[in-house]
Amino acid sequence: MIIISKHLVPKGFSGITLYPFIFLRNSKAKEDKIIINHEMIHLRQQIEMLIIPFYIFYVIEWFFKFLKYKNGYLAYQNLSFEREAYSFETDINYLKNRKFWAFIKHL
């Protein structure tokens, strides 16, 4: 389910995925196949990690990346989940062929 909400999506971001929802900053993003594909990759990641462990791992990984880069946004960009999603967001067929826990390659 896709929900439009400029209040739930942090500034500087087009969308955020919190299983089972994809929140988008504006209605134009709903038509953007790249943004939707990016967020669908996150949905797959969350499902295969059984949702709650995904969020725990996400926060822990962000914390360690923050210590490394000393910058919150740079830490976010270098998260394994984000690196996978950004790397394949333009490949609309990626999820059809994606291997289980593919984000591990981006650690």
Rank of each mutant, 00 (worst) to 15 (best):
K68G: 03
F81C: 03
Y69L: 04
F81A: 01
Y76H: 11
F54S: 02
Y76N: 10
I52H: 01
R83G: 06
F66A: 07
Y58N: 03
F81Y: 08
F81I: 07
Y76T: 04
Y58R: 01
F64Q: 10
A85T: 02
N71Y: 10
P53H: 10
E84K: 04
I51C: 02
F63S: 11
V59F: 15
R83N: 07
V59L: 15
F66C: 05
A75K: 09
M49G: 00
I60V: 15
M49N: 12
Y86A: 13
E61Q: 15
S87A: 15
E84S: 04
F57Y: 14
Y55D: 04
Q46V: 01
V59Y: 14
Y76C: 06
Y69W: 11
M49P: 00
Y86K: 12
E82P: 05
F64N: 09
V59H: 10
G72M: 14
F54K: 02
F57H: 12
Y76M: 10
V59P: 00
Y86T: 08
L79D: 05
A75P: 05
E82R: 01
Q77M: 14
F57N: 11
E48D: 10
R83W: 01
L74I: 14
A75R: 07
Q46M: 08
Y73V: 13
E82W: 01
F54T: 01
Q45T: 01
Y58V: 02
R83Q: 12
S87T: 14
